[in-house]
Design a protein around this nucleic acid. Sequence first.
DNA 1: GTAACGCTGTGAATAATTTCACAGAATAAT
DNA 2: ATTATTCTGTGAAATTATTCACAGCGTTAC
Lengths: 216, 216
Amino acid sequence: MPATVSEKTIGRLSLYRRLLYELRSAGEENLYSHQLAQMAGVTAAQVRRDLMSIGYSGSPTRGYDVRELGESIGRFLDSPIDQGVALVGVGNLGRAIMAFFAGRRPHLRIVAAFDTDPYKVNRVIQGVRCYSLEQMPQVVESEGIQVGILAVPAVAAQGAADTLVRAGVRGLLNFAPVPLRVAPDIYVEDIDMTMSLEKVAYFARQRATQKELQTW
Amino acid sequence: MPATVSEKTIGRLSLYRRLLYELRSAGEENLYSHQLAQMAGVTAAQVRRDLMSIGYSGSPTRGYDVRELGESIGRFLDSPIDQGVALVGVGNLGRAIMAFFAGRRPHLRIVAAFDTDPYKVNRVIQGVRCYSLEQMPQVVESEGIQVGILAVPAVAAQGAADTLVRAGVRGLLNFAPVPLRVAPDIYVEDIDMTMSLEKVAYFARQRATQKELQTW
DNA sequence: GTAACGCTGTGAATAATTTCACAGAATAAT
DNA sequence: ATTATTCTGTGAAATTATTCACAGCGTTAC
Ligand SMILES: NC(=O)c1ccc[n+]([C@@H]2O[C@H](COP(=O)([O-])OP(=O)(O)OC[C@H]3O[C@@H](n4cnc5c(N)ncnc54)[C@H](O)[C@@H]3O)[C@@H](O)[C@H]2O)c1
Ligand SMILES: NC(=O)c1ccc[n+]([C@@H]2O[C@H](COP(=O)([O-])OP(=O)(O)OC[C@H]3O[C@@H](n4cnc5c(N)ncnc54)[C@H](O)[C@@H]3O)[C@@H](O)[C@H]2O)c1
């Protein structure tokens, strides 16, 4: 069991757990590494290697217990106490995100939203209260929020990140197409849709071209 | 100049180009690898290594020409002819995406949307016509679409992917939290917000804990 | 019993990615 | 001119991530 677990492994564990949850709903009780691997789109060795890091062991004959493994990943990934999330920027994307996460994982839910638009402040959207920026330090403090989602325009992203971090947030999910400058002990995950779409366009084109050249 | 360029490098090149474009708007004409690196949040060696793959050379004394380098990345990344994109699923997320990409890069724009909801079909949203699923093969064919964005509910994602691929699409940007099963010559990029948020929550917590234990 | 099977857990090998470190080059200063 | 400076481009090294390959085990079949 390694001291630190890589970012990639954490991501895959999250995926495995979701797949296990679906299997459990479907009534499955056991599965082998190669089955989970096929569902997750990775190799069986990868699955077993990832599971080493949480210290869960399967049986050579039955494989893994769907319920136990799911719970084991949960104990590893989730906080023992519920983690509240703050969303900054209640625009088109922000509202879609609120709708998406509403009523999902209770361990990790959006508990407060922030926006500069006075029309949005004090409204309740998807069951979540929208506050003004001035209220952020107080709300983040009182709710014990450690995670922030940035869905503000690019120009406002760095400022919003600074305010969140000053208020006590330790991790950021950033949708603004701007690399954030934060202290090295703050974790930032960027979701850069423009970059992702350009990647898809590049490789789609490349594969199409390769296909044409396929003469062997 | 390597025969194939890694996915990660393609992603960073997309980012570099955006940063260069901003610099150009700000009137900058030259910059060094360490400056671009700092803006992109990577090392200078990484920038130089990435630029090797597109075969653009800078000057040891002036660094890189902002305009030339941007154009050079464009020639490498972009298709010589405009690439149209199809969006499937005009819900909360789909509409936010349409708003976001509307009027951005003309090389790579959403030219058609698809939805099963008869209320949405034949409407024009953000300048983009919404079609029924039955029209997909015909529209994808006539528009020469190679790239698809999936913003449909999880249960509909695999079916929508299959329909897109059958119609001729070679690359997919998938927002549904479901690993897609497609032919190996189809490129898929997943944006899994649940996984990303869980990663942030995990590392935010871990860093916070480390800070507490910081006794050295 | 015990032999055969097909899995897991994991050291070792391999592959991919990043960083180091420095020769070579363009310029500026003298 | 010559020297000093500070960068780029790139082999080589280091690091990180993935895959191979197999010993060992629980189960089943006979
Ligand atoms: N819409 C998308 O699908 C999409 C896709 C990729 C990236 N993004 C990025 O996500 C961000 C939000 O996009 P959007 O489409 O929701 O934009 P939007 O304009 O619809 O919403 C932005 C919201 O942020 C609020 N805001 C502005 N400044 C603020 C500040 N300083 N503090 C708090 N709130 C502030 C605005 O009042 C508005 O409600 C942008 O950075 C955009 O580039 C959006
Ligand atoms: N909203 C978010 O911020 C968010 C975040 C992460 C992931 N997602 C994922 O993105 C997807 C869409 O999310 P959403 O919030 O926009 O959902 P939504 O319910 O608002 O929209 C889904 C849209 O897809 C259409 N649709 C349903 N079946 C279809 C089919 N077979 N073909 C074409 N269109 C079909 C519906 O009519 C609807 O317009 C979901 O898979 C969701 O899990 C959304």
